[in-house]
Computed example of a mutant assay.
Amino acid sequence: MTVRRALTALALMASLPAAAQQQAAAPAVAPLPRVALDTTAGRIVIEADTQHAPVTAGNFLKYVDGKRLDGVVFYRAVKVAPQFGFVQFGTNGDPKRVLPPIKHEPTTQTGLHHTSGAISVARFEPGSARGDFTISVGDQSPSLDADPSKPGDNLGYAAFGHVVEGMDVVEKILDTPVSPTATVNGAFKGQVPQQTITVVTARRVPPAP
Protein backbone atom coordinates (compact mmCIF):
# COMPACT_ATOMS: atom_id res chain seq x y z
CA MET A 1 0.00 0.00 0.00
CA THR A 2 1.38 3.42 -0.98
CA VAL A 3 1.69 6.22 1.57
CA ARG A 4 -1.06 8.15 -0.21
CA ARG A 5 -3.47 5.19 -0.10
CA ALA A 6 -2.65 4.55 3.56
CA LEU A 7 -3.40 8.17 4.45
CA THR A 8 -6.68 7.97 2.52
CA ALA A 9 -7.68 4.83 4.42
CA LEU A 10 -6.88 6.50 7.75
CA ALA A 11 -8.95 9.53 6.77
CA LEU A 12 -11.91 7.32 5.90
CA MET A 13 -11.62 5.52 9.23
CA ALA A 14 -11.52 8.83 11.09
CA SER A 15 -14.76 9.90 9.39
CA LEU A 16 -16.66 6.84 10.64
CA PRO A 17 -18.67 6.87 13.88
CA ALA A 18 -16.85 5.35 16.87
CA ALA A 19 -18.96 2.15 16.86
CA ALA A 20 -18.33 1.62 13.16
CA GLN A 21 -14.59 2.18 13.67
CA GLN A 22 -14.51 -0.50 16.38
CA GLN A 23 -16.40 -2.92 14.15
CA ALA A 24 -14.11 -2.22 11.22
CA ALA A 25 -10.99 -2.67 13.38
CA ALA A 26 -12.17 -5.84 15.16
CA PRO A 27 -10.62 -9.04 13.79
CA ALA A 28 -13.00 -11.55 12.27
CA VAL A 29 -13.80 -14.44 14.63
CA ALA A 30 -13.65 -17.84 12.96
CA PRO A 31 -16.82 -19.93 13.31
CA LEU A 32 -16.62 -22.79 15.79
CA PRO A 33 -16.07 -26.26 14.32
CA ARG A 34 -18.98 -28.69 14.15
CA VAL A 35 -19.01 -32.48 14.19
CA ALA A 36 -21.76 -34.82 13.04
CA LEU A 37 -22.14 -38.09 14.91
CA ASP A 38 -24.05 -40.34 12.55
CA THR A 39 -25.41 -43.03 14.86
CA THR A 40 -27.70 -45.99 14.45
CA ALA A 41 -30.31 -43.89 16.31
CA GLY A 42 -29.93 -40.80 14.11
CA ARG A 43 -27.65 -37.79 13.61
CA ILE A 44 -26.28 -35.60 16.40
CA VAL A 45 -24.39 -32.42 15.49
CA ILE A 46 -22.03 -30.95 18.09
CA GLU A 47 -20.40 -27.52 18.09
CA ALA A 48 -16.99 -27.71 19.79
CA ASP A 49 -16.04 -24.51 21.63
CA THR A 50 -12.37 -24.27 20.72
CA GLN A 51 -12.41 -20.63 21.80
CA HIS A 52 -13.29 -21.14 25.48
CA ALA A 53 -12.13 -24.75 25.98
CA PRO A 54 -9.28 -25.14 23.49
CA VAL A 55 -7.62 -28.16 25.15
CA THR A 56 -10.78 -30.22 25.69
CA ALA A 57 -12.45 -29.28 22.40
CA GLY A 58 -9.17 -29.84 20.57
CA ASN A 59 -8.88 -33.29 22.13
CA PHE A 60 -12.37 -34.21 20.89
CA LEU A 61 -11.47 -33.05 17.39
CA LYS A 62 -8.33 -35.19 17.44
CA TYR A 63 -10.47 -38.24 18.07
CA VAL A 64 -12.82 -37.19 15.28
CA ASP A 65 -10.08 -36.39 12.75
CA GLY A 66 -8.29 -39.65 13.54
CA LYS A 67 -11.57 -41.56 13.02
CA ARG A 68 -11.11 -42.99 16.51
CA LEU A 69 -14.82 -42.61 17.32
CA ASP A 70 -16.03 -44.55 14.28
CA GLY A 71 -17.69 -47.69 15.60
CA VAL A 72 -17.79 -46.77 19.31
CA VAL A 73 -21.05 -47.24 21.19
CA PHE A 74 -23.23 -45.38 23.67
CA TYR A 75 -22.48 -47.68 26.58
CA ARG A 76 -24.13 -45.68 29.37
CA ALA A 77 -27.53 -44.02 29.83
CA VAL A 78 -28.20 -42.47 33.22
CA LYS A 79 -31.83 -41.38 33.44
CA VAL A 80 -32.60 -39.65 36.74
CA ALA A 81 -36.02 -38.31 35.71
CA PRO A 82 -37.97 -37.79 32.48
CA GLN A 83 -35.79 -35.74 30.11
CA PHE A 84 -33.06 -35.48 32.75
CA GLY A 85 -29.78 -37.37 32.89
CA PHE A 86 -26.90 -38.03 30.52
CA VAL A 87 -25.62 -40.46 27.93
CA GLN A 88 -22.01 -41.53 27.49
CA PHE A 89 -20.03 -42.80 24.52
CA GLY A 90 -16.41 -43.16 23.51
CA THR A 91 -13.34 -45.32 23.43
CA ASN A 92 -14.03 -47.02 26.77
CA GLY A 93 -10.33 -47.62 27.32
CA ASP A 94 -9.72 -49.36 23.97
CA PRO A 95 -5.89 -49.19 23.63
CA LYS A 96 -6.19 -48.96 19.84
CA ARG A 97 -8.28 -45.80 20.11
CA VAL A 98 -7.20 -43.83 23.17
CA LEU A 99 -4.86 -40.86 23.07
CA PRO A 100 -2.82 -39.48 25.98
CA PRO A 101 -4.78 -37.82 28.81
CA ILE A 102 -5.30 -34.07 28.73
CA LYS A 103 -5.11 -31.15 31.12
CA HIS A 104 -8.37 -30.48 32.94
CA GLU A 105 -10.23 -27.30 31.97
CA PRO A 106 -12.75 -26.57 34.75
CA THR A 107 -15.90 -24.62 34.04
CA THR A 108 -14.64 -21.84 36.33
CA GLN A 109 -11.88 -21.33 33.76
CA THR A 110 -13.83 -21.77 30.53
CA GLY A 111 -17.09 -20.12 31.54
CA LEU A 112 -19.03 -23.03 30.01
CA HIS A 113 -21.68 -24.93 31.95
CA HIS A 114 -23.50 -28.26 31.91
CA THR A 115 -26.75 -26.96 30.52
CA SER A 116 -29.01 -29.24 28.47
CA GLY A 117 -27.17 -30.41 25.37
CA ALA A 118 -23.69 -29.72 26.79
CA ILE A 119 -20.98 -32.19 25.83
CA SER A 120 -18.31 -32.91 28.40
CA VAL A 121 -15.34 -35.24 28.74
CA ALA A 122 -15.47 -38.05 31.30
CA ARG A 123 -12.63 -38.39 33.79
CA PHE A 124 -11.42 -39.94 37.01
CA GLU A 125 -9.00 -37.58 38.77
CA PRO A 126 -8.34 -34.18 37.14
CA GLY A 127 -5.96 -34.61 34.21
CA SER A 128 -7.04 -38.18 33.40
CA ALA A 129 -9.62 -37.46 30.66
CA ARG A 130 -9.11 -39.17 27.32
CA GLY A 131 -11.73 -40.23 24.78
CA ASP A 132 -15.03 -40.75 26.58
CA PHE A 133 -17.76 -38.14 26.38
CA THR A 134 -21.12 -37.37 27.98
CA ILE A 135 -24.07 -35.34 26.71
CA SER A 136 -26.37 -33.76 29.29
CA VAL A 137 -30.14 -33.94 28.98
CA GLY A 138 -31.65 -31.23 31.17
CA ASP A 139 -29.76 -28.46 32.95
CA GLN A 140 -27.18 -30.10 35.22
CA SER A 141 -25.36 -26.95 36.15
CA PRO A 142 -24.06 -26.43 38.80
CA SER A 143 -23.97 -30.09 39.94
CA LEU A 144 -21.48 -31.14 37.22
CA ASP A 145 -19.65 -27.80 37.13
CA ALA A 146 -16.61 -26.89 39.19
CA ASP A 147 -17.36 -25.51 42.64
CA PRO A 148 -14.33 -24.20 44.58
CA SER A 149 -16.45 -23.88 47.72
CA LYS A 150 -16.80 -27.67 48.03
CA PRO A 151 -14.22 -29.89 49.76
CA GLY A 152 -12.07 -32.46 48.00
CA ASP A 153 -12.13 -32.80 44.20
CA ASN A 154 -14.32 -29.84 43.38
CA LEU A 155 -13.19 -29.24 39.80
CA GLY A 156 -16.24 -30.80 38.18
CA TYR A 157 -16.22 -31.97 34.57
CA ALA A 158 -14.90 -30.14 31.52
CA ALA A 159 -17.73 -29.02 29.25
CA PHE A 160 -16.44 -28.05 25.81
CA GLY A 161 -19.41 -27.59 23.48
CA HIS A 162 -23.07 -28.33 22.93
CA VAL A 163 -25.51 -30.14 20.67
CA VAL A 164 -26.86 -27.88 17.92
CA GLU A 165 -28.90 -30.55 16.12
CA GLY A 166 -30.32 -33.90 17.17
CA MET A 167 -31.27 -33.48 20.83
CA ASP A 168 -34.26 -35.68 20.01
CA VAL A 169 -31.75 -38.43 19.15
CA VAL A 170 -29.91 -37.89 22.44
CA GLU A 171 -33.20 -38.13 24.32
CA LYS A 172 -34.06 -41.30 22.41
CA ILE A 173 -30.77 -42.84 23.55
CA LEU A 174 -31.44 -41.76 27.14
CA ASP A 175 -34.86 -43.42 26.95
CA THR A 176 -33.43 -46.73 25.72
CA PRO A 177 -34.22 -49.51 28.23
CA VAL A 178 -31.21 -50.52 30.31
CA SER A 179 -30.15 -53.96 31.49
CA PRO A 180 -30.53 -54.56 35.21
CA THR A 181 -27.43 -56.76 35.30
CA ALA A 182 -25.05 -55.79 32.47
CA THR A 183 -21.89 -53.83 33.26
CA VAL A 184 -19.05 -52.21 31.33
CA ASN A 185 -15.72 -53.44 32.67
CA GLY A 186 -17.48 -54.22 35.92
CA ALA A 187 -19.05 -50.76 36.25
CA PHE A 188 -22.30 -48.92 35.41
CA LYS A 189 -24.65 -51.71 36.52
CA GLY A 190 -28.22 -50.68 35.73
CA GLN A 191 -27.02 -48.03 33.26
CA VAL A 192 -26.03 -50.09 30.22
CA PRO A 193 -28.50 -49.84 27.30
CA GLN A 194 -29.98 -53.16 26.20
CA GLN A 195 -29.91 -51.99 22.58
CA THR A 196 -26.51 -51.34 21.04
CA ILE A 197 -26.39 -47.80 19.66
CA THR A 198 -23.30 -47.24 17.56
CA VAL A 199 -21.53 -44.13 16.30
CA VAL A 200 -21.15 -45.20 12.69
CA THR A 201 -19.03 -42.17 11.77
CA ALA A 202 -17.90 -38.94 13.43
CA ARG A 203 -16.93 -36.27 10.91
CA ARG A 204 -16.51 -32.52 10.76
CA VAL A 205 -19.30 -30.69 8.94
CA PRO A 206 -19.43 -27.08 7.72
CA PRO A 207 -19.66 -24.60 10.63
CA ALA A 208 -22.55 -22.23 11.09
CA PRO A 209 -22.53 -19.39 8.50
Rank of each mutant, 00 (worst) to 15 (best):
T183H: 07
H114C: 08
L144E: 15
S149H: 11
D168R: 04
T183M: 00
V163N: 06
T115W: 15
S143G: 15
G190W: 02
A81K: 14
V80W: 03
A41C: 05
T201D: 00
L16K: 02
A20E: 03
G93I: 01
R123N: 07
V72Y: 11
P206C: 06
R97W: 00
V78W: 09
G42W: 01
V55N: 04
A77R: 00
Q21C: 05
A9T: 10
A25V: 09
A48N: 03
M167Q: 12
E171H: 01
D65H: 08
L174M: 04
G85V: 04
F124E: 15
D38G: 12
A9W: 10
P17Y: 05
F160W: 14
S141M: 03
V199P: 04
A77E: 11
E165G: 10
V163D: 10
G117E: 03
A48I: 08
G186I: 07
L112W: 13
V35H: 05
A146N: 11
A158L: 10
V121P: 10
G66F: 06
P148K: 07
S116L: 00
K189Q: 13
A6N: 13
P151E: 10
V184E: 02
I173C: 05
H114P: 12
Q191V: 01
M1Q: 08
T8M: 09
D94P: 12
R123C: 08
Y63C: 14
H113D: 01
N92E: 13
Q21E: 00
F60A: 08
V192A: 06
K189P: 09
P207K: 06
D132H: 15
P126F: 03
K172G: 06
